[in-house]
Design a protein around this nucleic acid. Structure first.
Lengths: 114, 114
DNA sequence: GCGTCATATCATTGCTCACTGATATATTAT
DNA sequence: ATAATATATCAGTGAGCAATGATATGACGC
């Protein structure tokens, strides 16, 4: 009888904070949310998010460097996709938490939004 | 036969970003991580996190306003606890995602850390 | 009351990041 | 080669936030 040992490496506090910060921006959330549905090329992301093209590209570079998305060239297009289904999990868990704390988050003005 | 309809309200992009930003700071992550173990009073949080007392209080005010923690007065102490087990879920989700992307997150220097 | 411990408040400071606008690179078609 | 489309790069700018230090409030015991 074999035993599977998962032993998840627990990230450092700084790594976690850095990863959370990757999600802590409306523009990146829009991009990731769109990519959770299906892989998309840059100009499609620009259309759907309403962000400027350089802005989308800048965020994509960051997301790519962090390993949150992957890219494949397709002719003159570059198609981006999320790198792991765990990203979708994280996003839906945040919505689950918002079910509980949405009101408080809304009224908290320590952050005035960016 | 009854059917249970969950219909989760999906938060707005801005709400999600704001909630993520609540987690996107090493100090707040330390505090929340400590509180996931057990409820603690302020000076215990100060000891365990190594943060200054005003700093901890400032972050607690924010976390309280957002509804991520609750507080109860206990004599001259004030005991804080996380408001929902979903917070712990979210934190473990991030560690699960870090299993996949830790290297990339580490090397991404679009954020230089705070 | 007075002193002490526990926590909260607030202004200031310095750093960091998101966005823009201009430009560069890459690919395909004519 | 030239034009057109698709994407990337980058400096500059403005705004926002985390931490500190000083101080204020609150609770308990003497």
């Amino acid at each position: 009888m074999t035993q599977i040992v998962v032993d998840r490496k627990v990230g450092t506090i700084e790594q976690r904070a850095k990863l959370f910060r990757g999600f802590a921006d409306p523009s990146r959330l829009s991009i990731l949310g769109a990519l959770c549905g299906e892989p998309l090329v840059v100009h499609e992301l620009v259309e759907r998010t309403g962000l400027s093209q350089p802005n989308v590209s800048n965020h994509l570079r960051c997301l790519l460097e962090c390993g949150l998305v992957n890219s494949d060239r397709d002719g003159r297009f570059i198609r981006y996709r999320i790198s792991s289904a765990r990203i979708a999990t994280l996003l839906s868990d945040v919505d689950a938490l918002l079910d509980v704390v949405a009101g408080g988050v809304e009224s908290c003005d320590n952050y005035r939004g960016r």
